[in-house]
Amino acid sequence: MQKRIAIIGGGIVGATAAYYLSTLPGAQHLKVTLYDDGNGQASKAAAGIISPWLSKRRNQQWYRLAKDGADLYPQLVHDAQLGTEVYQQTGTIVTRAALPDLEALDALAQERQKTAPTMGTVQQLTAQEVQAKLPLLTNPQAGVFLSGGAKVDGGALVDALLTQASHKNLTVRRERVKLDQDENVVTSLGAQRFDRVIIAAGAWLPELLVPLHVRTDVRAQKGQLIELAVKDYPLQENLPVLMPEGERDFVPFGHGKLIVGATHEDDKHFDLSLDAAVTADLLASAQRLMSGLTDQNITGVRVGTRAYTSDFAPFFGPLPEHDRFLVASGLGSSGLTTGPQIGRLLAGSALYGGTPDWRNYEKPLATYLTSSLA
């Protein structure tokens, strides 16, 4: 007997869940339908750096989730046969202007490497050595290089995972859906009943859960980044990514494409319009690292909507008092790092059931989800 599973949201969590629901043992007995209209999706707009190991966040649950998410990527990339245009482990450089800060960063890296072998080698670099690894820079700072760091194109990753799942048991519906108080998914074809529903709708989760009388601690945040055409160095696709102190992230891809960003705009919420002032600010950040850039180098602007919680931590798991539903949200700017691990865990729970214990990764769901009837 086929089991019917719906996924609401086709970003990094939903796409990864769909992929695993097409490959895990027992997937042949599933019929999976994913709903997403694509409007404002954070993952589609994102180009991310997979390098969580030097984060100064005190939330150890988040760090374990992010570390395990980074660890999952090589296996996911291998199993899904993803190309270097999607994901590439090229190393990460994190810079500091002051020598004491650089020494402290290096010490942190050496300590965390003991429990995170995926970090690869750790190397302290002078400004000249940073420039040698990343010749696009004309104003380099000294930094710490982690060979295990990687870059990922969020849109390409989501598309690749959904395409593979669609060859097996996934149907993608490009539409926006709702829930009703009877726990149905309300689609353009009417109310549909599913055995399990994974809701991975990011910042749109609060409005989806209103019919179920659930309040959600999630807010929307606008993010923008720019694409630049730069000199195409030989083997540019192998250049490391840069997390510069005081500036926007610097992510070189192949064929002379450089991505700079992203912003964190709390007051813009679901606004997807391009903002010339923000574009100019992103360009100015790039210019402080690389001279000679002008607005003529800008080839595109990406805009998306992230989901954040009050404590900046993600949450995921079974929706209290609604056993057929699994939810995930609040991934923020680390969504491309934590999202695949969350999607994999939710897929396993949707397929096999049970009561998973994810306390190692998150606070109790009651921290973020409360009844609106109370």
Rank of each mutant, 00 (worst) to 15 (best):
R4Y: 06
T16F: 07
A17E: 03
A18R: 09
Y20A: 08
L24N: 12
P25C: 03
K31V: 07
T33V: 11
D36K: 02
D36C: 02
Q41T: 12
Q41K: 13
A42Y: 00
A47S: 10
A47V: 10
I49C: 00
R57I: 14
W62V: 13
R64L: 03
A66Y: 10
D71I: 02
V86P: 01
Q88L: 15
G91M: 05
T95W: 02
P100S: 00
E103D: 14
L105V: 00
L108A: 04
E111N: 04
R112D: 07
A116S: 03
A116L: 08
A116H: 01
T118E: 09
T121F: 15
T121K: 11
Q123P: 05
E129G: 02
Q131K: 09
K133F: 05
P135A: 10
P135W: 09
P135E: 09
L136Q: 14
T138A: 05
G143F: 00
A150L: 04
L157R: 14
L157F: 11
L161I: 06
S166Q: 08
K168I: 10
K168Y: 03
L170R: 07
L170Y: 15
T171W: 04
T171C: 08
R173T: 04
R174Y: 03
R176Y: 13
R176G: 15
V177S: 04
Q181F: 13
E183N: 05
V186Q: 08
T187V: 06
Q192R: 14
Q192W: 12
R193H: 09
F194I: 10
F194D: 07
F194E: 07
F194C: 07
D195T: 08
D195W: 00
D195V: 04
I199K: 11
A201L: 01
L205A: 03
L208E: 01
V210L: 10
P211T: 08
L212Q: 06
V214H: 15
V214P: 11
R215I: 13
V218P: 12
Q221L: 06
L225H: 05
E227I: 13
L228A: 02
A229S: 02
K231I: 10
Q236S: 12
P240R: 01
D249V: 03
F250T: 11
P252C: 02
P252G: 03
P252V: 04
I259H: 04
A262P: 09
A262H: 10
H264V: 15
D266S: 14
H269F: 05
F270K: 15
F270Y: 10
D271H: 15
A277E: 09
T279G: 12
L282M: 05
A286K: 11
Q287H: 01
R288C: 15
R288T: 15
S291L: 10
D295R: 12
T299C: 09
P314D: 14
F315R: 00
G317L: 07
E321F: 11
E321W: 13
H322D: 15
R324C: 00
S329Q: 08
G330W: 15
G330T: 12
L331D: 07
S333C: 10
G335Y: 07
L336G: 08
L346N: 00
A347E: 05
A347Y: 06
A347N: 11
G348T: 04
S349N: 01
S349F: 00
G354T: 08
T355M: 09
T355K: 12
P356K: 06
E362H: 09
S371Q: 14
L373Q: 13
L373T: 12
